[in-house]
Structures are given as structure tokens and as C-alpha cells.
Measured scan of single mutants.
Amino acid sequence: LQLFIKTLTGKTSTVEMEPSDTIENLKAKIQDKEGIPPDQQRLIFAGKQLEDGRTLSDYNIQKESTLHLVL
């Protein structure tokens, strides 16, 4: 599924993920695209901070969801 990652600067990146992927996997993919180390990334979806060990489906993240990346 395609996700949009929006940064505080207003920049939006697109990443392709599976519902079974963990937040950790997602942060690794963001690191590949943006060069931001996972330990500096905080991802927010629906007002919640996402935890590394959980999966996208745990948070009911659907295709074309927008996640907010806070550093």
C-alpha cells in the first residue's frame, strides 16, 4: 500500500509498504529515502505516536494514509 509521509517542512514523500510491515520497517524505508536515522523519527497517525514493534495493520493504516514525521 502507498503511504504519504509528511514532514514539518510540508514536504511529502511516498513509500510503498505492506499492511504486515512494522513501524520499524517503515522508519528504515524513510531512512533510505530521506537519510533520517530511525531513532530520530517519530511518526504520528490519527494523533497517536506509532511504536516500532507494531504493524501498520495494528494501527489500521490504510492505503494512501498520510503519516506525520516529527524529528
Rank of each mutant, 00 (worst) to 15 (best):
L1N: 04
L1K: 04
L1Q: 03
Q2T: 15
Q2W: 11
Q2E: 07
L3H: 01
L3S: 01
L3V: 09
L3R: 00
F4K: 09
F4M: 07
F4Q: 07
F4W: 09
F4D: 03
F4V: 09
F4L: 08
I5P: 00
I5C: 03
I5F: 04
I5Q: 00
I5K: 01
I5R: 00
K6C: 10
K6I: 14
K6W: 08
T7W: 15
T7D: 10
T7M: 15
L8Y: 13
L8K: 11
L8N: 12
L8R: 12
L8Q: 12
L8A: 13
T9W: 14
G10T: 03
G10F: 04
G10Y: 04
G10Q: 03
G10C: 05
T12G: 06
T12W: 12
T12D: 04
T12S: 08
T12H: 06
T12Q: 08
S13K: 07
S13H: 15
S13L: 15
T14K: 10
T14W: 11
T14E: 07
T14G: 04
T14I: 14
V15E: 02
V15A: 03
V15Y: 15
V15G: 01
V15D: 01
V15C: 03
V15N: 01
E16R: 11
E16C: 12
E16W: 15
M17P: 01
M17F: 11
M17S: 05
E18M: 14
E18H: 14
E18C: 10
E18K: 14
P19W: 10
P19F: 09
P19M: 09
P19Y: 10
P19E: 08
P19K: 07
P19L: 10
S20V: 05
S20G: 13
S20L: 09
S20N: 13
S20H: 13
D21E: 07
D21H: 05
D21K: 03
D21I: 03
T22Q: 03
T22S: 08
T22N: 04
I23C: 01
I23P: 01
I23D: 01
I23R: 00
I23G: 01
E24H: 11
E24V: 08
E24D: 09
N25M: 15
N25E: 12
N25V: 12
N25W: 10
L26N: 00
L26W: 00
L26Q: 01
L26M: 04
K27F: 02
K27L: 03
K27D: 00
A28F: 12
A28K: 15
A28W: 12
K29D: 01
K29A: 10
I30A: 01
I30L: 08
Q31P: 01
Q31V: 04
D32S: 12
D32P: 02
K33L: 15
K33N: 09
K33M: 15
K33V: 12
K33F: 10
E34I: 15
E34R: 07
E34A: 09
E34C: 14
E34M: 15
E34K: 07
G35N: 07
G35D: 05
G35V: 02
G35R: 05
G35I: 02
G35W: 03
I36E: 02
I36D: 02
I36A: 04
I36P: 04
I36V: 09
P37T: 05
P37E: 06
P37N: 06
P37I: 04
P37K: 07
P37W: 06
P37L: 06
P38S: 14
P38D: 04
P38K: 15
D39L: 09
D39Y: 12
D39P: 08
Q40I: 11
Q40M: 12
Q40T: 08
Q40A: 09
Q40L: 11
Q41A: 05
Q41G: 03
R42N: 10
R42H: 11
R42S: 09
R42E: 06
L43M: 03
I44W: 15
I44S: 08
I44L: 12
I44M: 12
I44D: 03
I44R: 05
F45C: 02
F45L: 05
F45E: 00
F45N: 02
F45V: 03
A46G: 12
A46Q: 14
A46M: 14
A46W: 09
A46N: 15
G47P: 01
G47C: 05
G47E: 04
K48S: 08
K48E: 11
K48V: 14
Q49E: 15
Q49D: 12
L50M: 06
L50G: 00
L50T: 02
L50E: 00
E51C: 08
E51K: 08
E51T: 06
E51D: 08
E51R: 08
E51H: 08
E51W: 05
E51A: 08
D52E: 09
D52I: 06
R54S: 06
R54N: 09
R54T: 06
R54L: 11
T55R: 12
T55Q: 08
L56Y: 01
L56H: 00
L56G: 01
L56I: 10
L56A: 03
S57P: 02
S57C: 04
S57F: 10
D58P: 00
D58K: 02
D58C: 03
D58Y: 15
D58Q: 07
Y59F: 04
Y59A: 02
Y59H: 03
Y59N: 02
N60V: 04
N60E: 07
N60L: 07
N60C: 05
I61L: 07
I61E: 02
Q62M: 11
Q62F: 09
K63S: 15
K63D: 15
K63G: 14
K63W: 09
K63Y: 10
E64L: 13
E64H: 15
E64S: 12
S65L: 04
S65Y: 07
T66E: 07
T66V: 14
T66C: 05
T66H: 15
T66Y: 07
L67R: 01
H68D: 07
H68Q: 11
H68V: 14
H68M: 14
L69S: 00
L69Q: 02
L69D: 00
L69H: 01
V70I: 13
V70W: 11
V70C: 07
V70L: 13
V70E: 10
L71G: 07
L71Y: 10
L71M: 09
